[in-house]
Design a protein around this nucleic acid. Structure first.
Lengths: 374, 374
DNA sequence: CTGAAAGCGCTAACAT
DNA sequence: ATGTTAGCGCTTTCAG
């Protein structure tokens, strides 16, 4: 069992408060006693118990980062950026993965609550009211979602989706599908809203496919639906789904971008490695991570009143900023001009339409949760 | 500031110990008082402070997972598996990323130490003596490394590397490069040892290239060296490097597997998505995560003696098991027969050898840290 | 500069 | 079934 402050005090012949000072306010202790204390501490392998310390100081110097799916390459840059920023300010980051499960999410906030000074809720799947509730237990900054009254860092995926649709319109596409993401995703709603409006404005038809799990599998599973729907372009909820979809289309004999154009969202590193390279809406993930940490720790340097209860120091809400980070469409190889005269379908099946597919789509796609907007 | 147990006691007119019992041993309290207490708690938004609780029980019901690089897709399956197993046993997992930095690694162990009941050290980069030292502060299970006296979960990459080399030998390759990973990696040493022995046994020459950062960039950066070295096959430290290398070779005009065969290690999901699909040594990452959690929590159900200091309950060393998990070579499309007559190099440069490259290699490659084994 | 004392929020004997 | 008491390991007034 690890040595405690008392063991060190005994070994070095001083009172425990002197040992305490040696570690938390070294300048307040006589240099000679300090070295004696340090020596005993070293010898006993003593390390201050940060949990006990936090109980009284109210500060752990840790921050929690809760994310929906650690396997999604979208998150690592955000995590790294948050870690870097936290490190600058002498904080450590603990990451928790929720597996896209709202229940796990809530549990994890509570598990983390008293082990950290604040929590970054990244792409939360729980309800707004629950978010508000947990924010009364521990300071929270929300990433990738707007919650009234709470500090939020968002990325303007609405603008991104608009640019994507306009890009596709410019290439002549008029029948476009939106490959939706998971239920409960704010990003998903934003994309749908903005893409719908842009399509409407451009006189295009937007077919909604989803909700889907935001993974390659989720994207690939909709390849058949995309084929049936007769669209010439697809905007996917994220790059992973876009890549999965391209794979799936490939297996159906449909080429990207010759037969179908595909746009993703996120600009994960992988999107430059696949063939074709993915056209996608780049989101400023690293900036989001840094900003969120800054917002959480903005009052870090202020003094704390005594008497327990975490004070205004971390996550105070006097200045509940909500910041919207800009996105940017990066055009690569997965988008191209609309096929001239409808398309011949190499992987043709009985449902496969003739060359006049474009003129005679045979009605909107029927999908679980599918909708036709405009 | 959050409500404490005292607030609830006051509000419901009972002693704080009754409130405590209501939450930690509900069956010991009268149903009627229980509902009263619960009601006040609900109303006040009271949540037991798990840090304070841990201070006395010695159990946080959290476990820490320290990994070298959260951006490496090798880890997520391990993380998910650990989380799942932990969840079964009513534990939560906090992940910390070290960025391949031994210093950050040590800091994070200390930051986590008292917030968790034990730590899983995954592919640690710090020295064995440091690992032993931190293991005196908090129970530790080491993954992907062998440390005497500590519980370890390893994957038999040695066997995997041997299979990979034998596979290449079977395809006729006699000049093979080993694309090394990061310094301080146990896996790296194992691979080098086993691959060296297998190459020697098969009468092949093994050129060592490295150390390198275990990333796509790290792999791609060695493409030129690989070309110069005149090898016909490469075994990479991991899939990421293998994929990066294939990219790099592609840009030099070398085709995989026609000109060069490439084998990775890990079998990350991505290795099935790239073209060509990667031949690789599949490591049982999920099993490793589960096993490590089991080893850490093996004495979880035992009673704990009173008097502070975490006891035998978690991470006890009475049974310091070291388990070695099996690996398996999965053959896909990135390996093929050795080029018949040396290879014509589409991307040929002044250094480019003629068709008799194989017979006249012009000496071993000179690389930073490069060695020629056998 | 150092010691004494109080207490962070909670649990766990021990009584009653 | 509930209250009393004594701390877990540490920090922080307050004296001296």
């Amino acid at each position: 069992m690890p040595a405690t402050i008392r063991d060190v005090a005994r070994a070095s012949g001083v009172h425990i408060s002197t040992v305490s000072r040696t570690f938390s306010a070294p300048h307040l202790v006589n240099p000679e006693t300090r070295v004696r204390v340090l020596a005993s501490a070293e010898e006993l392998g003593y390390r201050p118990n940060r949990a006990a310390r936090a109980l009284i100081t109210g500060r752990t110097h840790n921050i929690g980062l809760i994310i929906a799916d650690i396997a999604n390459p979208f998150f690592p840059p955000l995590i790294k950026a948050a870690e870097g920023q936290a490190r600058h300010r002498d904080y450590h980051v603990f990451v928790a993965d929720t597996n896209e499960d709202p229940t796990a999410e809530e549990e994890l906030v509570h598990a983390l609550a008293k082990q950290v000074d604040g929590v970054l809720l990244c792409s939360p799947r729980m309800s707004n009211s629950l978010i508000e509730q947990v924010s009364r237990e521990v300071p929270v900054v929300v990433i990738n979602r707007q919650v009234a009254g709470l500090p939020c860092v968002m990325m303007d995926v609405g603008q991104g989706a608009r640019s994507a649709i306009e890009h596709l319109l410019g290439l002549g596409h008029r029948r476009i599908a939106l490959l939706g993401g998971p239920r409960g995703s704010w990003t998903n709603r934003e994309i749908r809203r903005a893409a719908g409006a842009a399509a409407r404005a451009g006189g295009a038809e937007l077919t909604l496919l989803g909700p889907n799990p935001p993974t390659e599998t989720g994207g690939g599973a909709q390849a058949e639906q995309v084929r049936r729907s007769g669209v010439t372009a697809v905007l996917a909820y994220n790059d992973l789904m876009a890549i999965g979809l391209i794979e799936g289309l490939d297996q159906l004999g449909l080429r990207v971008p010759q037969d179908v154009s595909v746009v993703g969202v996120d600009d994960i590193a992988l999107s430059r490695l696949t063939r074709p390279k993915l056209t996608t809406v780049a989101t400023p993930t690293a900036a989001a991570g840094r900003t969120a940490v800054d917002m959480l720790l903005q009052h870090d340097s202020e003094p704390r009143p005594r008497g327990g209860g975490r004070s205004a120091a971390v996550g105070d809400r006097r200045t509940t900023a909500q910041v919207m980070l800009q996105t940017e469409l990066v055009i690569r190889d997965s988008t191209g001009p609309v096929p001239e005269t409808g398309r011949t379908r190499p992987g043709g099946t009985p449902e496969s339409p003739g060359p006049h597919r474009l003129a005679d789509p045979g009605g909107p796609a029927r999908t679980t949760g599918g909708v036709v907007a405009s």
